[in-house]
Amino acid sequence: MLLKEIKYLAGKEIRLELKQKYVINGILLYLVSTIFVTYLAFDSVISVETWNSLFWIILLFVAVNGISKSFIQESPARHLYYYTIASPQAILLSKVFYNLLLMTILSGLSFLFFLLLMGNLVMNMTLFLVNLFLGSLGLASVLTMVSAIASRASHNFSLMAILSFPIILPLLATLMKVSKSALTEIQWTGNYSFIIILLMINLTVVILAYLLFPYIWTD
């Protein structure tokens, strides 16, 4: 039952996105132009630390921009309609699933553009991509929940940022740690524990969101 609801709701999200192409195009352009600005700002080859920090900070801002619309895109009347036909958990999980899809695409594209413009410094590509996917999942779940919270307030971009940045730090710190290791060495040793930490953080966030979302969904 829940899975079926999630399937329909996530399908609705995707159709909605394809219908209003300017939203996703806007985020894509934001991504490309931000990376281009960093490319112009550094006129020589950059160090591994700089590459790593720039990449994740850009991805964080792209994610905040892309996900902040999750709960304000549709009208309150339509939310009321969803409220009557679907469980809050299904609404939340479908949004998380859709945002995961979105974040996977956005992080993949960011990575490609970064490779193109800032140079390829990655030594362990598999580890980097695994980390990137876990990062997409984490960013999608945390930011979906925060955008639900922010959408209940008189919504603005800065509220979304100030609510999410301190919360996202454990995730971001772990991601940057693993990513730096993927940039500097080939072997995996020592990174398994961080991968497990990432999985645990993601699990914690999804469980918390699953438990808490019904309280903000009802008025």
Binding site: V142, M145, I149, L163, P166, I167, I168, L169, P170, T204, V205, L208, A209, L212
Partner: peptide, 8 residues
């Protein structure tokens, strides 16, 4: 938000 943020 308080519960979510405190756990994180």
């Amino acid at each position: 938000y308080n519960i979510f943020a405190f756990v994180m």
